[in-house]
Write a protein that binds this DNA or RNA. Structure first.
Lengths: 403, 403
DNA sequence: AGGATAAAGTTCGAGGTGCGAACAAATTCG
DNA sequence: CGAATTTGTTCGCACCTCGAACTTTATCCT
């Protein structure tokens, strides 16, 4: 049971009823399509007449469309309803330190087109170029309407103003991306932290069992981010900064982290950690410790490639990273007990090696009553980008803001 | 934005509108009482006529009552509305390993009476005795109606059946407390884990700034429990077992925990930990390590008493506990970034000593963007017991289950 | 004293919404 | 060809909020 937020509520009117039931209908169609009005009546518990009325309106508003007629052993054949995927489009933007990916998607989270550009160091320049690219992309893929622009980025937004307040890897500061883009393009813009976007992606378009309402996404790159869905809703915390489990101290005497502390989880288990482990093993092998110039700092991708070739040093570095990754995941499983925990990042390419080590660490360390499934995401599925789409679609498919 | 739970939703009808607005009104009265209809109109945004209609019904249902007339510089004087605290009572039961406390409370979370009994080892016997005590207490404090019985206990319930599935300190197993009590007394029973109950207590009757929607309660006794409120709602996780941060590994080579792992947070920072630190310091002082018989295992309460007398050994043990407590709290602050984190337990009696050490650890270890206030609870305020009341009152004051 | 002003609270018809029964349409089976 | 069955529509009813008009109560100013 939720407490009513007296600082941010909506009273109910007659139309509220229709809004609630429409959203339920829309979700039922999304889940069961193709589906007849009679089926919707059974799924929802609404009266046949009510279902017909709502369907009529949703068809008029072009959210739904009628399709083929079904087949039954007896009686009148049902007319199927579908989501009208042509109705609207959504623009998704995934900003990463080096590359920014943008895409347009239809209502069913299918990408219609996708392209990349470099992420500029100068925010002004970047916004101008991104705006142009988005407009071009929308012009090339005309839709009945565009609903909005979702943006994922490695940083933190102020929860009220949505201004960017922290994005060390991008090198921007205090940027009001939202307002600028909204003015340039004329569509609502929604920003979200990358890990949170991944969590949303899994919630709305993940291939999980139906009814997953507690889900954690762990993004592993040069840092570690955690996005949490609890009770079917993204957890942003008081200032929008929840999920910084990457900066939980795991080894007080461990290596220095760029956050200023030492031995943070992300210092021990991120891609950069594997890179460091690999480099360290080089100098150890040579019998010299600390002669930094000797350390061969291979990019993480190369380490993964070496692992595929069964290179012993690379495997050892990866194992070390995996063990620490598992330790942190055990913390999340123990403390949050989600139904599903998904891992996002290049490291999933070696999941056949990493997965068992993580599973072992979790089994060893975590409290036994949780039954969290730990799953790698397919990098092809572009979780960040899918999350930006979910971010916008939420507004139509999510629960109405009431009470 | 919340995702609609298609496995557990309610469609809206005309009455839903009234239900939503009634609950909003009830909460507004709770927050602002005494308050006039005209004020409620302004707070809620509803029409004057609607406010009057809802008030009329709530008065008829005895949720509200009219009180004194107010005073204004001009115009007709307003009639104030209050919560009708006499309307209903709630029974709260706080089961702890040695003692069970039971109380009856009015709608405003004020205790009318409170008494204790010993917690039996035999569950059947216990249920019988508890039922009798509850019935006696209700008879001694007659109310218009009793709304339900809330129970807090140190253990875990199955989230669907509410059967007790894990309560090592009580020594009961697989107990269906809910059904038995409901049959004996004829009131709905709600069970909740003690840490969760404390979190609910702070959410509903805590003395915090208004609008705290992300809150963590840490209960420190012989174990450590964590209750989480995120987005204004209790986080129970997939199987109702979320919050076991007490069993997150902090020192892999640390002392054995009764959960089977080693170096869990609760092994390092619970009351028992302080007791152990104290005992260890004894044997160290004597120059012998490991001769267990020499270790003086003082109860935690005695250690606190010694601390009040500035006993050096006791202070050292408490400091050690406090440092570890702070380390774990830093993890929660970093990862969950709640508005408020409350600490519950005997340790708060020495908060003038413990608080600064915790604050220091949090400052040192946690990510800097969170602005969590860390507060001790007053043991006199009986957070567990208040939580059981909140557990029941939620059903009337919480957001309606819709969509 | 009496009228203007002001604010609280009530009354009542209009419009939106779901309910539920009756009805129409479409299809199969004997 | 009619009975049975299932889908989908129509229509009057009840519930709810809205919003304007109205009543009630009180103060201030002339």
């Amino acid at each position: 049971m939720r407490k009513i937020d007296l600082n941010n509520f909506q009273v109910a009117t007659s139309e509220t009823v229709r809004d609630i039931n429409s959203r339920i209908m829309l979700n039922l169609v999304r889940k069961h399509q193709p589906v007849s009005r009679a089926d919707l009546m059974r799924y929802s518990g609404l009266q046949r007449s009510t279902v017909s009325a709502i369907a009529e309106r949703l068809i008029a508003e072009r959210w739904l469309k009628e399709g083929a007629v079904g087949d039954l052993p007896r009686g009148r054949k049902p007319t199927f309803l579908h989501l009208n995927t042509e109705r609207c489009g959504v623009v998704g933007v995934d900003i990463q330190p080096a590359t920014t990916t943008l895409a347009v998607s239809s209502m069913d989270s299918q990408f219609l087109a996708q392209e990349s550009m470099s992420t500029e160091k100068d925010p002004g320049e970047f916004i101008a170029r991104l705006s142009r690219r988005i407009k071009d992309l929308m012009r090339a893929h005309p839709r009945n309407s565009y609903e909005g622009i979702g943006i994922s980025l490695p940083g933190r937004m102020d929860s009220s103003s949505q201004r960017l307040i922290f994005a060390p890897t991008l090198g921007w500061s205090e940027l009001d991306l939202k307002t600028h883009l909204e003015r340039n393009i004329g569509l609502p813009v929604e920003l979200e932290n990358a890990a949170n976007a991944c969590a949303l992606a899994e919630l709305w378009s993940g291939r999980h069992l139906d009814g997953v309402r507690n889900l954690v996404a762990v993004t592993v790159s040069d840092d570690i981010g955690v996005g949490m869905i609890m009770n079917g809703q993204l957890v942003r915390g008081s200032t929008g900064v929840a999920g910084e489990f990457g900066h939980v101290t795991q080894e007080p005497d461990g290596p220095k982290c760029r956050c200023g502390n030492s031995g943070c989880w992300e210092v021990l288990a991120s891609n950069s950690a594997a890179v460091r482990y690999y480099a360290e093993s080089a100098s150890v092998r040579k019998g010299e410790v600390g002669s930094k110039s000797d350390m061969t700092k291979l990019p993480f991708g190369d380490i993964l490639r070496l692992v595929e070739q069964n290179d012993a040093r690379a495997c050892k570095a990866l194992n070390q990273m995996a063990r620490h990754l598992g330790d942190g995941i055990a913390m999340l499983v123990t403390g949050l007990a989600p139904d599903v925990l998904v891992v996002v990042g290049e490291v999933t390419r070696a999941w056949d090696k990493v997965g068992p080590i993580v599973a072992e660490a979790v089994k060893r360390r975590s409290f036994t009553h949780a039954v969290t499934r730990i799953l790698p995401t397919d990098p092809e599925a572009q979780p960040r980008l899918r999350g930006t789409i979910a971010l916008v679609l939420q507004n139509h498919f999510g629960a109405p803001l009431i009470a």
